[in-house]
Structure formats: structure tokens, C-alpha cells
């Protein structure tokens, strides 16, 4: 049997150590069969969750989660999140957890694998930003998505349902401060989802904008933004 296929069960049960987890996830990016098997095994481990039989949560948990979510509403001034977490390992752990969401459930269409792989290269950094408990989010106006800005100013855009850039064109990100746009990276767009790290930090008083430019990008935008943050 494919050794990885057997490891799929252990992975679906979270019975792997961090090193095994990393190795397996690297394999997953290249193996449709394991991805299919994993999706199926996850359904079984999800069933095991139903049989866990622990007690009911305190009603306050629901309110706390909703309040925290509200405080992070992209279009509101962010409150400082206060996670009752021991600081150290938490960010990395949440990042690992979110890898499930950001990477592994991607389309399994063979033709997209290269894109998947290159997307994954920047995924570690994107995950660290998106899952930073101190991060805040700002919504885009005119597109479905938002910018997540970590406490250090490192930022990632999360976009969904954006048409791929036309042939010979590219989307370009801008960090706009005091009316001056500075280039912050290029991306191709994707029907499904997109997480892209900005190449420059986003100060608190700056906006993030997106334009469509000729492939290769430009130093100054050639037109008004397609959309920008609120």
C-alpha cells in the first residue's frame, strides 16, 4: 500500500507529530488520491466527534465567540482581541489549524496543482498573519474580501470570487498613505479564493487598493483602483 495512504488515517485522527504532519501535507499537495481519501476519512473522524459525549458548553461561550467576532468585523474599528491563551505556541498552532482551510481544501483539478504549489510557498507567512490573534481586518469596498493586518503591520489580502486577470494583465496591490500609492505585490486572481501577502507593511492610517495593470506590474497605478479598503 502507498505508505502515505496509510498515514492518511493517522493524519485524519490528528495522530501525527508536527514533523510527520508537515511531511504528509507536503505530499498531499501533490497527490489527488490521498486528498480524496483524506476528505473521506475526515468525514469518519467527524462522526467520531459526534460520539465523544462530553458535556454541554456554558451558554457564555456562545456570547463570547459572537462578541469576539463582532469586535473583528472588518468594517468596525478593531478592538484589541483578548484571547485567554498562553501566548507562546498559540499562533503557530492556530496557523497550523488554518492550513486546513487555506491550503488543503483547494480544488483538486490537476491543472491547478502548480498554482496550488506556488500559492503554498507563501502560505506559511499568510497563515501567520491571518491567524495572528492580535491582527485586525479591514473590508474591501467593491469586492468580496478583506485585508488582515497583523500587529507588526504585515498584511495579507483574502479575496473570494475575483475573476482571473485577463491575458497579459495582472492585479496589483497598493498601500496608499497620504494619497500616495506604493506597490505592494502582484497576483493573478482566482475564482475560488486567494490569500496573498503584501510585500510592504500596512500602517494604521493607510488603505489598501487593487488595480489592474499590464503583466509585470507598474510603479505607479495607471488608473483608479478597482476596489479599495473602507
Amino acid at each position: 500500500m502507498d505508505d502515505h495512504l496509510e498515514l492518511t488515517a493517522a493524519y485524519a485522527l490528528d495522530a501525527v507529530d508536527p514533523r510527520e504532519r508537515e511531511r504528509y501535507e507536503a505530499h498531499l499537495a501533490t497527490c489527488d488520491r490521498c486528498r480524496e481519501e483524506l476528505a473521506s476519512f475526515w468525514t469518519v473522524s467527524g462522526a467520531l466527534a459526534h460520539a465523544a459525549g462530553g458535556p454541554a458548553p456554558a451558554p457564555a461561550l456562545r456570547e463570547r465567540i459572537l462578541a469576539q467576532a463582532r469586535s473583528e468585523r472588518p468594517n468596525l474599528v478593531p478592538l484589541r482581541p483578548r484571547w485567554a491563551l498562553p501566548a507562546a505556541a498559540s499562533v503557530a498552532a492556530v496557523a497550523a489549524m488554518l492550513a486546513l482551510a487555506l491550503g488543503l481544501w483547494g480544488s483538486s483539478l490537476a491543472g491547478e496543482l502548480d498554482r496550488e504549489r506556488s500559492a503554498r510557498a507563501g502560505a506559511g507567512e499568510a497563515l501567520a498573519i491571518v491567524s495572528d490573534p492580535g491582527a485586525h481586518t479591514v473590508a474591501f469596498r467593491g469586492a468580496e474580501g478583506h485585508v488582515v493586518v497583523s500587529e507588526t503591520g504585515k498584511a495579507a489580502v483574502v479575496l473570494a470570487g475575483l475573476d482571473p486577470a485577463p491575458e497579459g494583465k495582472t492585479y496589483e496591490l497598493w498601500v496608499v498613505r497620504n494619497g500616495v500609492p506604493r506597490p505592494a505585490g502582484l497576483f493573478e486572481g482566482s475564482e475560488a479564493r486567494l490569500v496573498q501577502v503584501l510585500t510592504r507593511p500596512v500602517p494604521a492610517d493607510a488603505k489598501v487598493a487593487v488595480t489592474l495593470e499590464d503583466a509585470g506590474g507598474v510603479d505607479t497605478p495607471t488608473g483608479p483602483p478597482l476596489f479599495e479598503t473602507i
Binding site: 476528505a39 473583528e72 485567554a84 491567524s131 479564493r193
Partner: peptide
């Protein structure tokens, strides 16, 4: 346990746009 649940739902709140439904419920 509350931490684990809270973090998962907050992760959902932040990353829901990346969920691809055809792969899992």
C-alpha cells in the same frame, strides 16, 4: 475546551472565504 472551540470559530470567521465546500461538509 472553550479556548479550542473559540479559536476554531474565530478561525472560521476570518477564513470562511477560503472554504471550498465540495471537499467537505
Amino acid at each position: 475546551a472553550e479556548d479550542a472551540v473559540q479559536e476554531a470559530f474565530l478561525g472560521l470567521w476570518r477564513a470562511a472565504a477560503t472554504f471550498i465546500p465540495e471537499r467537505a461538509k
